[in-house]
Amino acid sequence: MSVKKDSKLKKVCFHLFLIISVIIALYPALRVFGTSLRPDNALHSTSLAIIPKHATFAAYKELIFEKNFLIWLRNSFLVTLFTVIVGVSLAATAGYVFSRKKFPGRKAGLTFFLITQMFPSTMLLLPMYLLLAKFGLTEQQQLIPFLGLAKAHLGLIIMYSSTALPLCVWQMKGYYDTIPESLEEAALVDGLNQFQAFYKIILPLAKPALVITALFSFMTAWNEYMVARVVMTDNNLYTLPVGLTNLAGQFNTAWSQFAAASVMIMLPVMAIFLILSRYLVGGLTLGGVKG
């Protein structure tokens, strides 16, 4: 389809439409950036301009040196890191057998993973919260003091890596489906066992899907707010989303600080997205469902 030639007029219309869309897509992010640069006395401005008059980085300074921002950042980073590691390894192995092997329970398993997506988050959140409370995993006690990993963080990691899991499994399966089976057959003939064939031959080829799966788990953990809000009570244990919304919920909201924090949280995610965007089209194979 892309080889077709369009008339000049049509092209101009497309560009116009796309440019307007891009502005709408970008404006909120730019707006936050603008707000973060505003001096305190200009918070209520009625200008639509992005960069305010007398722009200043004061909010960033305040945030980093006077608030708990760096501690929240570390907490979020730890929780996210472990979630990604657990999520990707589980999805890579489970997705592989769902794609390649015929075994009793295969179809039921796949359907089951899809059904778990239908559970309203409150349905798991409430029992999980009570369970975590019973096992003491909502406690603010430090688990690994050196890292600052608390018991409550462990609870979050367990919840995040499993809530993203069904989607990741489907996603990995969809991609494995596109890799020809003859590759493993050749590897088995060459004397590798099944696991080695998976690990040495197929896994490196599935890199784009692994990247997307990692991205999914990363987004789940980095952006999650509703669960963390319930589990975390101590300011020092907050992950970024909880810390940030508390900042915004205070009686006298420091909007420029809130905006500055948003920018610092957004930037890594956006950077990762931009870097990985070439993987997104090829690697997102949720639609590739073959039986």
Binding site: L26, P28, W222, N223, I265, M266, L274
Partner: peptide, 29 residues
């Protein structure tokens, strides 16, 4: 899918709403 100039740039920028953490998006809006 059409043959347009700057196509990859459009595609990348249009994904931005997905890339911003949802709770931030909602508070911005």
């Amino acid at each position: 899918e059409h043959d347009l100039m700057f196509k990859p740039i459009y595609r990348t920028l249009l994904v931005i709403p997905w890339a911003i953490p949802q709770y931030i998006v909602v508070l911005i809006w």
